[in-house]
């Protein structure tokens, strides 16, 4: 797709065409990850962002666009989808309204300006997640339905083989997860990466849920458990996003859905989420070790794997009897 030398003017012209000839100005790049880049601009004075997919990204951005549309309809606070499609040269794009605010977790958790937001965010997260999980599954075609345990089992096997490593603590976690799987899993549209960093926050609280590219069909408790993984507490003692208690999250979620939310299921998904993050740390270290991206920062992340092993051992303390006769 885009060559590095492609002029910003050509890109602005392509965006203008996608928007039916609106006047595009002030195009500036916000971020460029491995799979997509994000730009901000104004169309006839309206602040918008565009995300453009790189050729290596195999996910279908049209699916993400349809999730965003369905989430909006379901009452989830999200940026408004303005347009989506494919440029002439083949790259997929999504254009959304610009939502002002803060995404950096440490600022939201510590800066005085967000003290009011900190008191309301857990309740707002519970309500927003209940709305996400109310999206009719049939309204969004093409979402993956992979079993998370099977998917990360395969990832760990691949990484352990590539790096010539073994992780007994992770094997214990998989064994425990296998024996204690929640029984009555509801199937719903799941955001897949709901946490500080992926939500836009203002001084008054939650403004928009962002970053829907990992959305899939799964157990709704997955989103609640992921929100409680220690990495997403950013150093705070409070279990839910570093902001509140399990009870606050579960009671807010129960109030919004009108149905029970099982604390044991939440815990199960938190353990799986911790395991997932540990495996993702291995993946980042492997990018350095296998030479895809040499960096001491990525190398150092390899030594964060054991933080997740430790959290798993703490979470499962006194809960091993389901594996044996002890």
């Amino acid at each position: 797709m885009s060559s590095p030398r492609e002029s910003t003017d050509d890109f602005a012209a392509a965006i203008s065409t996608a928007l039916g000839g609106r006047n595009v100005e002030g195009l500036s790049r916000l971020s460029g990850g491995a799979s997509r880049e994000t730009w901000r601009f104004e169309a006839d004075g309206e602040a918008l962002i565009i995300q453009r997919q790189r050729s290596g990204d195999t996910r279908d951005m049209e699916v993400e666009a349809s999730v965003l549309r369905a989430a909006d309809t379901a009452g989830v606070p999200v940026p408004r989808l303005i347009a989506s499609g494919r440029f002439d040269e083949g790259a997929r794009y999504m254009i959304q309204s610009w939502v002002d605010g803060e995404t950096i977790a440490r600022k939201i958790l510590r800066d005085d300006v967000y003290s009011t937001a900190r008191r309301s965010l857990v309740g707002q997260f519970a309500t927003a997640l209940a709305a996400v999980h109310s999206i009719p599954i049939d309204d969004v075609a093409g979402l993956p339905t992979n079993d998370q345990v099977a998917q990360y089992r395969q990832s760990l096997d691949d990484l352990d083989a590539q790096l010539d490593q073994s992780h007994p603590a992770f094997e214990l976690a998989f064994r425990w997860l296998d024996r204690n799987r929640p029984s009555s899993a509801r199937r719903a549209v799941v955001h897949g990466d709901f946490r500080l960093g992926n939500v836009m926050v203002g001084p008054e609280g939650l403004r928009a849920v962002l970053d829907w590219e990992l959305a899939h069909i799964g157990d709704p408790m997955e989103d609640l458990g992921w929100l409680c993984v220690r990495a997403w507490r950013f150093g705070s003692e409070l279990p839910v996003a570093g902001l509140g208690t399990y009870d606050a999250l579960l009671s807010g979620y129960r109030a919004a859905t009108g149905s029970p939310a099982d604390p044991d299921a939440l815990r199960w998904w938190e353990v799986l989420g911790t395991l997932k993050w540990g495996i993702m740390c291995m993946l980042q270290a492997s990018a350095h070790l296998l030479g895809f991206s040499r960096s001491h920062e990525l190398a150092a992340i390899g030594r964060r794997v054991c933080e997740n092993e430790y959290d798993i051992m703490l979470a499962l303390e006194g809960r091993w009897s389901s594996l044996g006769v002890s």
Partner: peptide, 11 residues
């Protein structure tokens, strides 16, 4: 599985 506590302790 029948001596999981010893294994958990070592891990």
């Amino acid at each position: 599985d029948d001596r999981i506590e010893a294994v958990v302790s070592a891990v």
